[in-house]
Design a protein around this nucleic acid. Structure first.
Lengths: 204, 204
DNA sequence: ACCTGAACACCGTTCAAGT
DNA sequence: ACCTGAACACCGTTCAAGT
């Protein structure tokens, strides 16, 4: 009992285990993290600021895969599009984290930094101050929404004979695999075209 | 004890109470619903198919506010845009239901019917079968994503002095109230323009 | 410093028993 | 038919106590 010679727990291992549990089961719990790491539930609280603290660590972990270099590219629209793709790829690797992250505010400094850079990019590109957040929020909705679609390959709509939906069934069959990817590409194209048009009109 | 002369519980009251709890606290629990209705926790299970059943009732309740008549309008793009606005208004009234609904498949027949109609509309408008679901999914992401933004007025990003983000703070201040509404309008305009362009190019 | 072990209030779910 | 009351396995969180 008491303290082991080599620590059982640390923030790194706790985050990794939480992410594993989410990828496998869609959720995590403090007791299950502790069990996987061979420790008691209470011990986790010595390393982490409760369940919410773990959620914020997860945000940092997943967002660490976003390539910050994308935002340095030129021109601005190439940078924004590359950022969106990198952003989406990061969450596509762990789509089931999204519902967990969407209900709590972004605190993680490294993630806030990314937004800061994105805002700076659009300011430098000449966008009006008041339209920058709507742009970033719309892009973020697109990215996270379409990444979330990756979680339930074909089970977003549970078609039954009880409610006949022939056209819906047909449309689902016609798009097949990669439904979520196509929705992302479509949304991204629409967004980028509109962003470019917005900027042009602002120069008039 | 035993059975009261006038029933304490029914699906309607259970759904209403769950929705009240979500609007107030962001979540619901079976015991809390029971307590508000003056019944025991176990009694709820005689009317409803567990917690998941309540979630599906919530989906039906919130979606009932979507005007199905919008999809009958002409031309097709006016119908789709009106549907999107009605869809968003329904969820804007109860934005905190969104995280709850996003992780479970749509089973409610009345909701499936809405999708069936939307697919039919786009088929009739001449869209290719394979691009209809991407269109609907992209629109849905836009609607739900921007409705979810309504939950946390200004607390989506928790800016601290620890991580200085002057441009982000400036952009947030510049957009002010109605941030989520602006992101929706921007996204919707982008989406509708792209949908029209897609259809035109398909006719070539 | 790091962990245990027990406690607390809270979940979702089931089910015999009552009227 | 409708509800109670008790049970079960599971949460998140705290904290004295141990080494």
């Amino acid at each position: 009992m008491g303290r082991p010679r080599t620590p059982l727990l640390d923030r790194e291992r706790i985050t990794t285990t939480a992410l594993e549990l989410i990828d496998e089961c869609g959720d995590f719990s403090v007791p299950r993290i502790a069990r996987r790491l061979g420790a008691q539930t209470g011990s986790v609280y010595h390393h982490v600021d409760g369940r919410d603290g773990i959620v914020e660590l997860l945000r940092e972990r997943v967002c660490a895969a976003i390539d910050p270099g994308t935002l340095e590219r030129t021109p601005w629209d190439a940078a924004l599009e590359a950022w969106a793709r990198s952003y989406r790829a990061a969450f596509a690797a762990h789509p089931r984290t999204i519902p967990l992250l969407m209900t709590s505010p972004v605190r993680a400094p490294r993630v806030l930094e990314q937004y800061e850079r994105a805002v700076s990019l659009l300011l430098a590109a000449g966008f009006d101050r008041a339209e920058i957040m709507p742009l970033i929020i719309a892009l973020e909705n697109l990215v996270l929404g379409s990444a979330l679609d990756l979680t339930a390959p074909e089970i977003m709509w549970e078609l039954t004979d009880h409610a006949p939906t022939p056209h819906l069934a047909e449309a689902l069959a016609a798009v097949g695999e990669g439904r979520a990817d196509r929705a992302f590409e479509l949304g991204l194209t629409a967004f980028m075209n509109h962003a470019r048009a917005l900027r042009e009109s602002g120069y008039r």
